[in-house]
Design a protein around this nucleic acid. Sequence first.
DNA 1: AATCTATGAATGAAGG
DNA 2: CCTTCATTCATAGATT
Lengths: 180, 180
Amino acid sequence: MEEGLSGRFYIKTSGVRGGCGGGGTKCGRWNPTTEQVKVLTDLFRAGLRTPSTDQIQKISSQLSFYGKIESKNVFYWFQNHKARERQKRRRVSVDNKDTTIHREEKIPSPPTKHFAEVNHVIEPAERVIQTLQLFPLNSFDEPEPGEKFILRAGECREFSHTFGSDFIDHPPLDLRLSFY
Amino acid sequence: MEEGLSGRFYIKTSGVRGGCGGGGTKCGRWNPTTEQVKVLTDLFRAGLRTPSTDQIQKISSQLSFYGKIESKNVFYWFQNHKARERQKRRRVSVDNKDTTIHREEKIPSPPTKHFAEVNHVIEPAERVIQTLQLFPLNSFDEPEPGEKFILRAGECREFSHTFGSDFIDHPPLDLRLSFY
DNA sequence: AATCTATGAATGAAGG
DNA sequence: CCTTCATTCATAGATT
């Protein structure tokens, strides 16, 4: 049993910092600003769960106003957010089991966290006008109880205003590379 | 790993990976060893994108020396690698949405630079000598942009992946994928 | 400073 | 082929 212990170790052969050139640019990983997180969370709450590629592009462009961001950041954000929502839900679901040995659950337990969480304190700095023209259709990705309609690609194609009016259409993109 | 945007790599304790069948550890999903990834990456870089069933078989057989592996793992690896290469390329492309409006909100980071991240990875001196006898080289350096001819089944007559004799004794370790 | 938590990033495995 | 889910690795910041 390699993983008999609770902790696994690994050897990192690279410096934690200075991976982007050693200069002043700290390119560790994307650190979203509060505004960016707010917009993303808002979109998620609005029902957007798996934005399409073009949607990701637009969102990323919009959020780039608040700081450095890439499309993949948006992509990962939604992936993680969605996955962890389900994860939590699943955890709670498993909690129903009569496991006598039930340690202290730490799902919703803020460990002596006595600070006011800034979740909805920003109201004048609403620069991004999120004109979410989302109209619910009968296409839920997953009928989770207590969840809104899922906004999938194709349903809502207008999040904001400054987005270019360039519509998107997926070209055939058929690469036939048959060498016989 | 794709030695991409992160620019850092870590050494996984190779050897313990193949414990799915020989260690009794729980076998969730295939966890490739660094050697396996190396070979696969080399093949990919050589131009191989969609290996045929026979090629998959041979590759899997050869890679089984380094640990437990199945054909489907090889198949999935190429599928994922190819798809993600394209995805990454696509996400980083339309990133140049130069929002003329640039104001410093509260970006703790240095000047917001919208540039393609330079993926500079230091290639560790490896003793793996690959003898890929395929077709005129220099053609498959980047199989994504443009219409590079892809190495398909039948196109390649033999892959010779010779590994350095750093190790002691092990099979020939050359992927002869010659088949007609 | 060590530890814990939240979360960004990556990838194996499927699904469609 | 393209998209999505699940699990895991890795890390920045909060907590002790």
